[in-house]
Design a protein around this nucleic acid. Sequence first.
DNA 1: GAAAAAGGTTAGCATCAGGCTAAGCATTTG
DNA 2: CAAATGCTTAGCCTGATGCTAACCTTTTTC
Lengths: 159, 159
Amino acid sequence: MRQEAPEQGEHERERLVHEIQELNGAMEEAVMASLLQNLLSMDLTIQQLRVLMVLVTTKEGATGRGLSDSFGVSMASMSGVLDRLVDHGVAVRTPDPRDQRVRRVHATPLGASVVRRLMVARPFRGDILMRLPLADLRALEQGFRAVSRQISLLEQAGD
Amino acid sequence: MRQEAPEQGEHERERLVHEIQELNGAMEEAVMASLLQNLLSMDLTIQQLRVLMVLVTTKEGATGRGLSDSFGVSMASMSGVLDRLVDHGVAVRTPDPRDQRVRRVHATPLGASVVRRLMVARPFRGDILMRLPLADLRALEQGFRAVSRQISLLEQAGD
DNA sequence: GAAAAAGGTTAGCATCAGGCTAAGCATTTG
DNA sequence: CAAATGCTTAGCCTGATGCTAACCTTTTTC
């Protein structure tokens, strides 16, 4: 596995990608169980979850207008959905200082944690990582850095 | 936790775990966008999705009785949910050869892919991996193997 | 072999989420 | 000041889910 012709390298690349995805797939069952668990304990509808996800990622606070536009529903409908999110304690409405007609909608800490839990269905949890041999941790870090770097490259190129 | 000799190693371990989780977290935005996208295009209710996930993970085919028990609803209600899943083309009912009262319910390939897409909201996609330098791929593989190994160890111990 | 139990579906009913339009109230904008 | 904008409420409809009761078919039990 040292010095090899470029074709050789391509071969190894494909093999490695394949194996990484195999491993990733093998972890899926655990991931799925976790996701199911989270869905089971979550008392939100799909629509509420969608809106909540937008709230979580909108730092400045979303507006009813913006939400109803981006979901393609009337403001009246969105108002109802937001009512229910607020009732559930996962969102709050606050006044907009610059335009008093507008009410900014934010996810509460509870709302953020609900959404986060859905994605923490991944196996790279601290308790697992802490048990790994140092060498493996270093390797994992290198791999993550590379993936992360590649993603930002793609995003810059893509948009 | 803090000891003299291994302290150096423990320090690096904590730093590495921290950084890996930072990287993992930094990927979250992309992951979230993908998950939202999948939720948007998915035409299932939460309940249907929950049941479908169980179907996907139940290789031998689930029974109406079993499902209604584990979800805590009446068989009549579960029957309706299954009707809708079948209508959506994500599940099928087949006869049980050993007990003709029973109808085994399976996820269709479409159903399996719907569920899988929800979890493929992870950044380790082939197209991204294929762009990585070989050295990083090797490192990633080593890290994945280690995590995978650790998970099965924990599972054995846990059960 | 007949009675009881079990798996499943259907019918009928209730509730709730979410969609709409219309109307109404503030607040900006023109 | 009039028009436009943001939002909520009221009234209405549909679809998903939940229930019980009734019924059919197949196993089990006695």
